[in-house]
């Protein structure tokens, strides 16, 4: 089925090993080469079932670091895997809920509340994608979707509210991660969870910006209707700006991805000539 030269049996065997190594008990980032193999698998075979199967059957939940790394793996898989991954993930919410229940209190290494917050964020993300199947896992900017929803202002309004709710959840989760840093070093595992959050929050931000602009153009005189969204947009802009600023001080993170730099003030949504931010 894939156009690449691949060997299905070999890949399946390797996949088990990739999952095991990506979720090893070492308190480090999940190794990207193993995460990558899982993502590539879903594209090669248009299925994520074997990955979920591996996650469910391997003894991951006995250890808080392993559980947290598994959630990072799941997040990246939802973002960058084949679109079918988002659909198939809906059948895995039970497993995600179990993840959230495994560690009592804060856990010996302090991952308890991070795991619970990550689980509820991923469940919220899945709910969003179920209601809005037109978005991909990273909210990558595609003009046609924003145009589609402004034809029906009510639907557009609701989509933006839902996107903003997700953005707020990312914001409180990232704050929780920062507040759980320990000392000057050994935060790599926690920091690595910020990588998909930076990407996702920026995807959402770009989308909201372009959709709100389009809706302002469309609504014309009735612009006051959009005032609540504008106010919330501005608040989120400042929160996001602070989030990226704090990320820009983390060497591990800036080496890996470009942390966006937002302007001091939120962009003018009424300026119809403006493009979405890069």
């Amino acid at each position: 089925q894939p156009t690449r030269p691949v060997d299905k049996d070999k890949t399946e065997t390797e996949l088990t090993n990739n999952i095991k190594k990506a979720t090893s008990p070492e308190e480090t980032a999940p190794k990207q080469k193993h995460v990558r193999k899982c993502i590539v698998y879903t594209w090669d075979y248009h299925s994520s079932l074997s990955v979920w199967n591996g996650l469910r059957t391997q003894p991951i939940l006995a250890d808080e670091v392993q559980t947290f790394k598994a959630l990072i793996l799941v997040h990246k898989l939802l973002q960058e895997g084949h679109p079918v991954t988002l659909k198939e993930a809906l059948a895995q919410t039970g497993w995600l809920e179990t993840c959230g229940r495994t560690v009592g209190g804060d856990g010996a290494k302090g991952y308890g509340s991070l795991i619970r917050a990550y689980t509820s964020f991923l469940l919220a993300k899945l709910r969003f994608h179920r209601h809005h199947p037109e978005f991909n896992g990273l909210f990558e900017y595609e003009e046609y979707i924003s145009l589609k929803n402004i034809d029906d202002p009510n639907e557009g309004y609701e989509t933006i509210s839902d996107l903003m709710a997700l953005q707020d959840q990312i914001d409180s989760f990232q704050k929780l991660i920062f507040s759980h840093f320990r000392g000057a070093n050994n935060n790599e595992c926690r920091i690595s969870a910020l990588v998909p959050l930076v990407k996702e929050s920026f995807g959402i931000y770009k989308f909201i910006t372009s959709m709100l602009r389009a809706m302002h153009r469309r609504t014309g005189d009735a612009m006051d209707v959009l005032l609540p969204l504008r106010e919330r947009y501005n608040t989120q802009h400042y929160n996001l700006r602070r989030f990226y600023y704090e990320c820009s001080n983390l060497k591990y993170l800036t080496g890996l991805i470009n942390v966006p730099k937002l302007g001091q003030e939120p962009p003018n949504l009424l300026d119809s000539g403006g493009d979405a931010p890069d």
């Binding site: 990207q32 990558r36 993502i39 590539v40 084949h82 990588v195």
Partner: peptide, 17 residues
């Protein structure tokens, strides 16, 4: 055509360490 089809091979190298 081939690499548009298999873009994910390249895309997933963006976090190569």
């Amino acid at each position: 055509i081939y690499f548009k089809d298999n873009l994910y091979i390249i895309k997933t190298l963006k976090e190569f360490i």
